[in-house]
């Protein structure tokens, strides 16, 4: 399984506001790319463009050198697993039913035995098999996040797109989710995630892309991007980087 995502000079406007302005990136299988940047920098927008949900005004997204608009919607959905920042909770949907919706790109009429097996497989990966019959409303934050990831995995994606997968979780769950993401990388998935926590980005990423006001401010290996100067230029906050522990922290407060 070889997959390569290339984003070339993408521009997105919301009315007259530039949400993304000439963003390029590339990721392949077995890599984690973290997109960091202040609120409103365009992280979520970029994920939507890669997923094909949002059409860029200019620029192209290539999956294995094929432009996104040439790939059928269904095939894009099969290749990508999306973990949104938040989902709506309504209708007392069971975990099983919710994870099954991740199989939708493969299902024409009604789920088959294979689809059911894939759902249980995905639940096993995220260790959520015990609450298969609970409703989403009954889950804790960490459990819900695992189930949302299971939903994406049920579609057997080659690329995972995660939007703030660890926000709103306590320390233990944050670790769990990050370890899960790392294990997906070793399974050969390409992973692109928007993330706020710089330490986490530092620890798990192979590449980091720093967005600021829709533009790529810095990109490259974590050590190149995550240094006090760049971070101060973008966030306006002085930080220190403790390389031995891969720890980034603010100086004040």
């Amino acid at each position: 399984m070889v997959i390569e995502i290339n984003v070339k000079d993408v521009k997105v406007y919301y009315k007259s506001i530039k949400a993304l302005d000439g963003v390029s990136l590339s990721v392949h299988n077995g890599e984690i790319l973290s997109i960091i940047g202040p609120n409103g920098a365009g992280k979520s927008t970029l994920l939507k463009v890669i997923n094909g949900v949002l059409k860029p005004r200019m620029g192209v997204v290539f999956i294995n050198e094929k432009p996104l608009e040439k790939i059928p919607r269904k095939e894009i959905a099969q290749k990508t697993g999306v973990v949104p920042q938040r989902i709506r909770l309504m209708g007392m949907l069971s975990v099983y039913d919710f994870v099954m919706t991740g199989r939708r790109p493969y299902i024409n009429f009604t789920p088959s035995k294979i689809d059911e097996e894939k759902v249980y497989e995905a639940l096993k990966i995220v260790d959520a098999i015990d609450f298969v019959d609970r409703t989403l409303e009954e889950l804790s934050g960490g459990e819900l996040q695992r189930v949302i990831i299971a939903r994406a995995l049920a579609g057997e994606p080659e690329v995972m797109l995660l939007d703030e997968p660890t926000s709103n979780l306590d320390l233990k769950y944050q670790l769990e989710i990050l370890n899960l993401i790392k294990s997906l990388r070793s399974k050969g998935l390409a992973i692109i995630m928007a993330i706020h926590d710089l330490t986490q980005a530092y620890r798990v990423s192979d590449k980091v892309l720093l967005l600021n006001k829709g533009k790529v401010f810095a990109a490259g290996e974590p050590d190149d991007v995550l240094n006090p100067k760049t971070i101060f230029d973008v966030y306006g906050v002085p930080i220190i980087v403790i390389k031995d522990y891969k720890l980034i922290t603010t100086l004040e407060v």
Binding site: V53, V82, P105, G155
Partner: peptide, 9 residues
Amino acid sequence: GDELTKSTG
């Protein structure tokens, strides 16, 4: 949500 629906094709 609509976004998740769209991203599922």
